[in-house]
Amino acid sequence: MAEQLLKIHQLNKHFGGIVATDNVNLAVEQGLIHAIIGPNGAGKTTLIAQLSGQIKPDSGEIEFGGHSITGYNTARRAREGLARSFQITSVVMPMTLLQNVMLAVQGTSGHSFRFWAPVREDREMAAAAMESLAAVGLDDRADRIAANVSHGEQRQLEVAMALAMKPRMLLLDEPMAGMGKEEGAMMVDILNSLKGDITILLVEHDMDAVFSLADRLSVLVNGHIIATDTVDNIRNNQEVQKAYLGDGHA
């Protein structure tokens, strides 16, 4: 068995009377694309938010790269190599694509208490940023303002920013959300090209995308993981079909 990069033990989160995360145990192996699927309101985004540090779990432990990161804040987790993208596009809209990605490079390359040298003259940082833009096919639009590019391109920018952090693991929260067919296919290609290099935890609604990308699947229903297995086994799992995929799907 390959090394487990991310381990979640007994994670619980309640919002008032609602159980958002119910005793979740999960291990993500190094180098794989691990997808989490589940119906709306199953608690996927809440789970991602706990992994990235935006929400504190009520109880449980998150282990990353061999040590607990449960007490770390978002920024520290990011610097440890756990990068996330957002379900709702979250970039710095008035900045150019290049400036956005350069911020991502900057965030993981030492502190930023530097008050004098202009960032735009930092060739090394610009080169690293261009590399990430090229990886998602945006390098020809580097100087466009983020607010002025298409929704699909903003989603690609999200991924480029996450990549630029040189993460050990990517948390992707619905990277295909709101994308057209072509854009979605392009995103699948991009993610496929990363396979093996970066461990990815993927939350996605688009089942075709999930089935073509994922090495492992976990099914989340009502905050609880009811099954974790290979894609084929999940497809044939009776319980999963009943709970989620529906009878007509199989």
Partner: peptide
Amino acid sequence: ARFGRVIVGSKFNEQRMQALG
């Protein structure tokens, strides 16, 4: 400078800046 980029970025999208480290 680097410092200013962080300050300006935080004005527009603090959550994202935190997620960037």
